[in-house]
């Protein structure tokens, strides 16, 4: 399973960003290989409009199965994620990626209804 995170940096030490579309990095952790893959989300940060949908495209490219974030996506990105079947878990803002992963595995994050 591949778990994606909205993060301020490109490592397990980075902090979870509450934002979805304009987060600095999108990280993807593969629970089978234990590998972390990160992509720079600068393209979305600099987009005037449509930052959310651009970030969804990146998640799809990463092959993410679910997303751990803060506030959750806005309307447009939310409907795209729903169509892609990517589940979203919120309320992890401020945690380190490592801690957010542990929180998800301990089932203590809330799923956001898209």
């Amino acid at each position: 399973m591949k778990i994606a995170f909205t993060a301020t940096g490109n490592s397990l030490d980075a902090t979870i960003n509450a934002r979805f579309g304009r987060t600095e990095y999108l990280l993807c952790y593969d629970t089978e290989t234990k590998q972390l893959e990160g992509v720079d989300n600068g393209e979305s940060v600099n987009a005037a409009h449509g930052a959310g949908p651009l970030a969804v495209q990146k998640l799809a490219d990463l092959g993410a199965d679910l997303l751990v974030t803060g506030n959750g996506p806005g309307e447009k990105a939310g409907s795209l994620l729903r169509n892609l079947g990517i589940k979203v878990y919120g309320g992890a803002e401020g945690l380190r990626v490592e801690e957010a992963l542990a929180a998800f595995e301990a089932d203590s994050l809330k799923e956001i209804t898209l």
Binding site: N17, A18, R19, G21, R22, A51, G52, G70, N71, G74
Partner: peptide, 10 residues
């Protein structure tokens, strides 16, 4: 819209 989403998140 977009500006409000950007103002609220976080």
């Amino acid at each position: 819209g977009c500006p409000v989403v950007a103002a609220l998140s976080g």
